[in-house]
């Protein structure tokens, strides 16, 4: 079997290169490859969450101990993080999230649209920088840059992976 390096593998490799040691996630199909890479990596802590805000607090705790964590979630999960994101400002904690977008391109499920539409405004309201990847190349590049900025400057950065990039969910 030939193993092809996908753009999601490039994203994972960018996280590793940035020194990320904890990947927390609420699963999404668009993140499946990165999640599986993390689970299969003996040097990575892969933490499955019951809700996305757990991953925000987990990242703060990791940073207290000198660790770097990333939160993987779907756009609907951004809304579950709002209050916990306050510590990006009040404590200047770094925060890095990769967000797979729903509700914006060939979306079958209209219930995904409201939160999908609100994602940039919600993140910006909590002082998290929003960067949007629409191509495979941009996904890995923005992940690498986001990690540098988040952990190097004590900032919050979210990289949004557009639904067109991921591909619409098959029903």
């Amino acid at each position: 079997m030939t193993v092809t390096q996908t753009w999601q593998d490039n994203v994972y490799d960018a996280l590793k290169a940035a020194g990320v040691g904890i990947v927390s996630y609420v699963p999404d199909a668009g993140h499946a490859r990165v999640i599986n890479r993390a689970i299969g990596d003996a040097e990575m802590e892969a933490v499955v969450l019951t809700t996305e805000e757990e991953g925000v607090a987990l990242a703060y705790g990791a940073w207290l101990g000198g660790g770097k964590a990333v939160l993987l979630m779907q756009s609907s999960g951004v809304g579950n993080c709002i209050n916990m994101l306050g510590l990006v400002q009040s404590c200047r904690f770094p925060f890095l999230a990769l967000v797979t977008m729903r509700g914006e391109w060939e979306e079958f499920n209209p219930w995904q649209e409201p939160m999908g539409r609100a994602v940039p405004a919600v993140l910006e309201a909590m002082a998290v920088d929003v960067r949007r990847a629409e191509t495979p190349e941009a996904a890995a590049t923005l992940t690498a840059q986001g990690a540098v900025d988040a952990f190097g400057q004590d900032r919050g950065v979210a990289v949004l992976f557009s639904q067109e990039l991921i591909g619409a969910k098959k029903w």
Partner: peptide
């Protein structure tokens, strides 16, 4: 001591993040 003035509901998860990042502590 990490004191909390906000982020209600996050203390246990902060503890987990710290414990995973620093297994010797």
């Amino acid at each position: 001591n990490f004191y909390s003035w906000g982020a209600m509901g996050g203390a246990a998860m902060m503890g987990l993040g710290l414990a995973l990042a620093r297994p010797e502590e």
